[in-house]
Design a protein around this nucleic acid. Structure first.
Lengths: 288, 288
DNA sequence: AAATTTATGTAAATTTTTTTCTTGATGATT
DNA sequence: AATCATCAAGAAAAAAATTTACATAAATTT
């Protein structure tokens, strides 16, 4: 299943002028594009229907209707992927901006995520004796916490630290078979990189999620690269968080699959504790 | 956004025999149904094309192609919602699944977010003397941390706690003008609800992000309702997190706008500390 | 059992989409 | 600068898909 919007963005340069006009309409108003007939779409793009057909073919679709189906399947609602410099001032606009940006980050991530490194990371973690998650500075400490939160449920021993000194000390105690997960948005966390090197020296496997070619990425056995520019608006919360959380989700989910039989029992136990302790509804997610 | 598969399941009884044959094919082989022409679909169901058209109309679609589009839209999500474990076994599919789900959660959130309550929450927080963020249990404690992480940057005094006893004790110390932010996915956190009531009794304003009509939502001055069902797959990470983080983002961003002049200086200070302490690149998000 | 409603197919009409063919533009080569 | 090749894009025709209108069969009600 290929992501048609991603394909379109990639192919954008190779399109002729008329085809780019069509593409822009598709980007701007997916709602319309999905529901329009070839004639309506052609009309709005001020091109002829055959041009639309050719446009679809160029994107690897066999027909216009196949294109529409694929477009409909790419469930992304983000209206515009280019950063609209936000001068959002009322709540409604802020909601739109934040949600669109979050979706757009996830969308970019889709093209960017490096499958082989994710597989390797999940493999290493699934077989780890102990997993340490290191991250500091608000965002990355949150990620580290999230790694722990995800993994302990799967019956793995996991511990998160956001304290540089603790990271360094912990790194000195690792054993063969342990995995250290290093998290950094910028990749410029010198203390983290030092801790990872120490842990590596003592035989731990180092998995990171960070900016490629960065300091932290260097100190790594497996890096899952994430490279997203943040906008300039200092007031705007950083949306890289969504990307990191999604990446952690993906790895955790893969670990869960790999550990399936090992993971079910701890999950069942956690759940039964929560349910008997709190209330009878068991359709809730694990852990509030 | 209407879920055509859900509609179909509900309407099943009201369908004629021929129409049920069509419905079964749609259920059994969505892949086929989404890509087939009306003639192919009619052929496979052994009915005539007009019967298919009538079938689409009965489901509230204006035409066959509208039906296909709606099916395609729900098919993608549906496949993954229905049988996530069987489907997602390799890394690529897991990536698709997680990202699609996250996006679809954000999409739902867009329809669901209650603007007035967000405005009120942001107002209360922007003018708070002190903000406490309470949440427990992995996910919500992460949210509480996030609230703190967002707000202290804006020059607000903020403190997050995930410890029930601490929440209760803290609640006893609040003063007029303080805001307590309560976070819970399920809304069934009895200890949290008690702590909120205590804090309310001592004059704090209570803001929550939680499921509407829930225990926690009751104990509230302003609730931002979030109500998302989680899938059944216990192995699958809960994607409600994306919704909560987005909601927190929105509120924090609004607070930032409301406090603009007050917020710029703390942000500048944090940034200059980080930059001089760490390195020269100042295009990075605040706090790794 | 007759009358009425409902379901469904056939055939025609309409709409949509694709193919074919032509024109005009652009650019490289002599 | 003239010629040729290539490509983009539309017009018109052809094909395909879809819908409408109508007719008949089946089911249900009276």
């Amino acid at each position: 299943m290929v992501d048609i919007i991603g394909t379109l963005q990639r192919e954008m340069d190779g399109l002729s002028r008329s085809e780019q006009r069509i593409a822009n309409i598709v980007f701007d108003d997916r709602q319309f594009a999905v529901n329009a007939s070839i004639i309506e779409l052609a009309g709005r793009a001020e091109v002829s229907p055959p041009t639309v057909t050719r446009f679809c073919r160029r994107l690897g679709c066999q027909s216009f209707s196949e294109f529409k189906v694929r477009l409909a399947q790419s469930a992304f609602i983000g209206q515009r992927y280019d950063e609209p410099q936000s001068n959002a001032s009322n709540a409604e606009e802020v909601v739109q901006t934040i949600l669109t940006r979050a979706q757009s980050v996830l969308h970019n991530l889709n093209d960017q995520l490096d499958i082989p490194s994710i597989e390797q990371a999940a493999d290493a973690i699934a077989n780890a004796k102990m997993v340490y998650a290191f991250g500091s500075g608000g965002n990355s400490s949150l990620f580290a916490g999230e790694v722990q939160n995800r993994l302990f449920r799967l019956g793995l021993r996991a511990m998160a630290t956001n304290d540089h000194s603790m990271q360094l000390m912990t790194a000195s105690t690792v054993q063969e078979g342990d995995v250290v997960v290093g998290l950094s948005i910028s990749g410029r966390n010198r203390e983290l990189s030092r801790a990872l090197e120490v842990a590596s020296g003592y035989g731990a496997k180092i998995v990171t999620i960070t900016k490629p070619q960065s300091l932290v990425a260097e100190a790594t056995d497996v890096n899952i690269p994430i490279d997203l520019q943040e906008g300039k608006d200092v007031l705007r919360p950083s949306s890289a968080r969504f990307a990191f959380l999604a990446a952690i989700d993906v790895v955790a989910h893969l670990v869960a699959i790999k550990r399936k039989d090992l993971a079910i029992e701890p999950l069942r136990r956690i759940k039964s504790q929560l349910v008997t302790f709190r209330d009878e509804d068991d359709s809730q997610p694990l852990g509030d």
